[in-house]
């Protein structure tokens, strides 16, 4: 049985040059689009949240797309990040950008604490993460911890509010998450994760340290969510615990990632941009029909593009290739 170190990954994923250009383009396109977009459409907060959702969808992509573990409680890391960064800003006057990094570290630390959840699989894992996140929410919003977390009274970061810098940081985070996905996808590490996703027992037999590799992916995803929560808290500025520990955050991030196509670099980004744009367009133009239209759109997409846009794209390109081959 071949060992992973013996595999020639370059052969599988293309030349080294291509390996670097592709992620660079995937990260550069949203950077440029967001930088230009804010001058065309001035609802900067909406664009900030879109960038945050790209990061979250990419985080889901790393843990679900590459390992097969679906964390319904992903919002827990988001909330932890928002609180950790908010508290270091308020208590220690830490600059917001540095606080965002601290939020990411806090998310990763909580991820490490929740590592025993990987004893569970499938729906049990999903529900386990949900329960853990609810527990974290209850702890943080507990009035007995008011001296530390301000309990149920939320945080007011108005003194640190800077919409432009928060926007730039959100874009940088989105790009960083795309680069992280690219790294995972094209590295030996990513290959081991895919092996774990497809058959963890066989991967283990092939010499993959399954718990360790899964742990690394989990930490990366948790850190991304922590940083995303930090930027969210900073850009929203005044928030309550229920706003940052909102299960809807996980639901949207998962839907965006699935719609675009997990296991790909572009899928979650495109999925987020398209669905979040539709979400807001309907909300502004036809608020009374919002849920009806949005629900129908998702049902249609699930029916006709179950593997997301990436799967649909593959289907189209395969068809074209087949037709061309026949014609030749």
């Amino acid at each position: 049985m071949p060992k992973l170190d013996d595999l020639d990954l370059t052969l599988e994923t293309g030349s080294k040059g291509k390996k670097l250009i592709s992620p660079a383009i995937a990260a550069l396109v949203p950077i440029v689009a967001f930088a230009v977009g804010v001058h065309l459409y001035s609802n900067e907060l909406l664009l900030t949240y879109m960038a945050i959702y790209i990061a979250l969808a990419q985080g889901i992509n790393i843990i679900y797309g590459f390992t097969g573990y679906l964390p319904f409680g992903y919002f827990g890391f988001f909330g932890v990040g928002a609180y950790a960064s908010g508290l270091v800003m308020l208590d220690y006057n830490v600059p917001p950008v540095l606080a965002v990094i601290i939020g990411g570290v806090a998310g990763a630390l909580v991820g490490a604490i929740l590592l025993p959840l990987f004893r569970l699989r499938g729906a049990y894992f999903a529900i386990g993460t949900l329960a853990a996140s609810e527990a974290i929410y209850t702890i943080i919003s507990n009035p007995s911890l008011q001296s530390i977390t301000n309990g149920p009274y939320g945080l007011n970061l108005a003194g640190f509010y800077s919409s432009g810098t928060a926007y730039g940081t959100a874009i940088a985070l989105a790009a960083l998450s795309i680069l992280a996905t690219s790294f995972v996808r094209s590295s030996k590490f990513g290959l081991t994760l895919k092996a774990i996703r497809d058959d963890s027992y066989s991967a283990s037999m092939a010499g993959v340290n399954v718990p360790r590799q899964r742990f690394y992916a989990w930490l990366i995803a948790a850190a991304i969510a922590g940083m995303a929560g930090s930027v969210f808290g900073w850009s929203t500025s005044v928030f309550y615990p229920q706003a940052v520990f909102d299960p809807a955050l996980s639901v949207l991030a998962i839907v965006f990632a699935l719609f675009g196509g997990v296991g790909t670099i572009w899928g979650p980004t495109i999925g987020t941009v398209v669905l979040y744009a539709i979400y807001n367009a309907i909300g502004v133009s036809n608020p009374q029909y919002f849920q009806l239209i949005y629900g129908m759109v998702i049902v249609l997409l699930v029916l006709f593009a179950p593997r997301g846009l990436a799967g649909f794209w593959n289907y189209i390109t395969t068809k074209i290739t087949t037709v061309r081959a026949k014609n030749d």
Binding site: L28, E44, G164
Partner: peptide, 27 residues
């Protein structure tokens, strides 16, 4: 290739931040 790619990304972050910084809040 690596040497060429990462300066481009870093520069792009800079462009994004500069572009956003100017778009702060409007009344």
């Amino acid at each position: 290739m690596r040497k060429k790619t990462f300066p481009v990304i870093a520069a792009s972050f800079g462009i994004a931040l500069a572009a956003c910084g100017s778009s702060s809040t409007s009344s």
